[in-house]
Amino acid sequence: MSLRLNGVDAGYRRRLVFRNLTLPEIPRGTLVAVIGPNAVGKSTLLKSLAGVQPASGSMMLHEEPLAQGRVDQRVRQVGYLPQTLPQPVPLIAYEIVFSACRSARPDWSRAHIERAIEATFKTLGIHKLALRRLDEMSGGQRQMVGLAQVLVRRTPLLLLDEPTSALDLHWQLNVLNAVRAASDCDGVIALVASHDLNLSLRFCDQVLVLTPDGGAELGRPEVVLTPAMLARTYGIEARVERCSHGYPIVLADNAVTASDYF
């Protein structure tokens, strides 16, 4: 099982963000960190793969077309976490996760759904939030519930758009541990867009760097992530060093003139 992108065009009606994007095959069980500066198209890429934004070209998950397929097939294959948090409404956490299952997996029995929800809430460590109202939760807690809405469906492809943007360190690690476990145990392919380079490097197998000129580079972190690459994409002077555990860490020293990057 693998994910293959070939000649993908994506973007908005007036402005294409990607033209002819082609990536090496991403194998089963790979966690890919999608990084790049603001407005470079991280969200656009994930949305196109999720089929919520029009795109053309070939996007194949295990020889099956992704976006062009039927909607009920797509929601079984792709779990997409949008960047916006769930709204603060009087719905309780259990309800929105339950409705997500009912809507996306009409073939699941009630008992099956209940087991899936139980397991997901346990994995994410949000048991205590299950019967709480969304409008009485913090932004971070709602982000966790939104993530539960996606992970509960146990899709073979996960597309997470900044899943840790509202979370403190404890929950950031919790989330990435859960995604890592899904990749390792179930062979899930996960694309995680993030601005937190060091957190991403700690967990990912590969890095996909999107550059402002519409380019993309996919590879192992130690190969792709170089000071030269960081200067080109983010406009920063940075060092890439190794921590005492052997993980690469990025130390940003200086911003080069920002005007070129917007």
Partner: peptide
């Protein structure tokens, strides 16, 4: 081949959330 393994079976005590939701 595409579907991921079913969720792990949780024991009777494990469905406590579902029971809470049923009461709700």
């Amino acid at each position: 081949e595409l579907s991921v393994s079913p969720p792990p079976v949780v024991g009777e005590a494990g469905t406590e959330l579902a029971r809470g939701y049923r009461r709700f």
